[in-house]
Design a binder for these strands. Structure first.
Lengths: 233, 233
DNA sequence: GTGATCTAAAAGTCATACTTTTTGTTCGCC
DNA sequence: GGCGAACAAAAAGTATGACTTTTAGATCAC
């Protein structure tokens, strides 16, 4: 998925971002703006803007008389959805998916608990609708439809938590779910147990059962982690 | 805390970032690159680079024939440490601190549990040392020294979890703790209960007691949240 | 070998000219 | 009067070239 925008800048940014995230251009490698301009056949202006953006993500550092140095992984802004997308497209997607799923397993239960407290009737209704949509698409190779409802479901929970930091993790979760569906060979239908858990979670939230919401979400997360262990190298 | 770097770009970026995060320049407000160049007395080149960076943080969106539009809060990359810093410097620091602390309360217990499993002897030693440092600086108006050890402590736990996403939250936690110490009138010494909890947590991690590590961290988080309720509007 | 000095490489900055997209207006037609 | 198409201008996007500033690394003196 390549973010669109006025052509040149976006193209160069995306290409470089992918290369760095993928590990070509290993940390320590030095790039020169002039070379990049030549390589992409764009003006130095464009390259400089791209470099500034990569720098703000701490993927590179630019120093006078040295050049643009690729930074070690530990420096990267790994919560930037753009960076996440680049990394998920790269070689160590499995590792990436795992660490993101562990993150989800920490956050979503708490978010679900808060959602059980604060969800509006509209949010509860939307949640139930998503759960039903998941049920409807859980059989017969309708993975895309299922994914859509799954993403919407988790997004609603995160939003309903009322916490901004949780809510903004919706994009990350969406990337994880999409990455899982698209890149792991998922010829089978989704786990029926997971579907059931989502339905029950929608109920728990609607009824304001905090403890249950937390527990069910934890189960969902455990299932997701287990699935990763089974399907990923 | 103003990130340093080659002067002009950094200065303009920081100023604009602060203004937007603070809510001057409300969402929907349109800026023009020429005006900005004039206002800061820099070339359009510099302004454009700044705008591109702000755009990558989703603080603004730049469109032809329209200008640079400030985006609504929901679009911002709120996990970007830079954005966090800007927001914590602004008016609604209390709200910000609260939502970040809730985030901590979700993540740190899980991270501590993992740390109890995976921490190396070196990490355990460092943890104990930090805890002792906290004890030593917990009385007699040594807030700065205490803060330093507190930050180091939580950083080690997050790193020892072995999960990259958790580890990279160290910067966020550091910002939160620093913000709490510096911006809330903390003439008193830190809560003795919190100090004790940290010491016990270091022990739990060293002994590999996962459940205990989780529980103690939860208690620390609850205390922090309570403290916020008491001290913030 | 140590330290001060010099040099050149690369990023940083600026001014300007030109292109492209897009919005809002104008004009003609029904 | 309202509707659609052509049009003009505004603002960002791109390109280029000249110049400045920092600084790593070489050179040179001691």
């Amino acid at each position: 998925m390549t973010t669109q925008g006025p052509g040149l800048h976006t193209h160069v940014l995306d290409t470089l971002g992918l290369e760095i995230a993928a590990g070509d251009c290993p940390p320590g490698r030095v790039l020169r703006t002039d070379e990049l301009a030549q390589r992409f056949d764009v003006s130095r202006t464009v390259v400089r803007e791209v470099v500034r953006v990569l720098e703000s993500m701490h993927l590179v550092e630019s120093r006078r008389r040295v050049g643009v140095t690729v930074q070690p992984t530990e420096a990267w802004n790994v919560y930037d959805p753009q960076v996440i997308r680049w990394r998920l497209a790269g070689a160590d997607r499995p590792r990436q998916l795992r660490s993101l799923t562990v993150l989800r397993s920490a956050i979503e239960p708490v978010a679900a608990g808060l959602a059980a407290r604060h969800a509006t009737p509209e949010q509860c209704a939307a949640l139930t609708e998503c759960a039903l949509g998941m049920v409807a698409t859980s059989r017969g190779q309708q993975l895309e439809g299922y994914l859509e409802h799954d993403i919407a479901f988790h997004r609603i929970v995160l939003n309903a938590s009322g916490n901004e930091m949780f809510a903004r993790l919706g994009d990350v979760v969406a990337e994880v779910l999409a990455g899982r569906t698209h890149h792991q060979v998922m010829f089978e239908d989704p786990d029926p147990a997971a579907v059931t858990l989502h339905v029950r979670l929608a109920e728990a939230v609607r009824e304001g059962d905090v403890a249950d919401a937390e527990r069910l979400t934890k189960e969902i997360a455990v299932g997701a982690l287990h699935e990763l262990d089974v399907l990923a190298p």
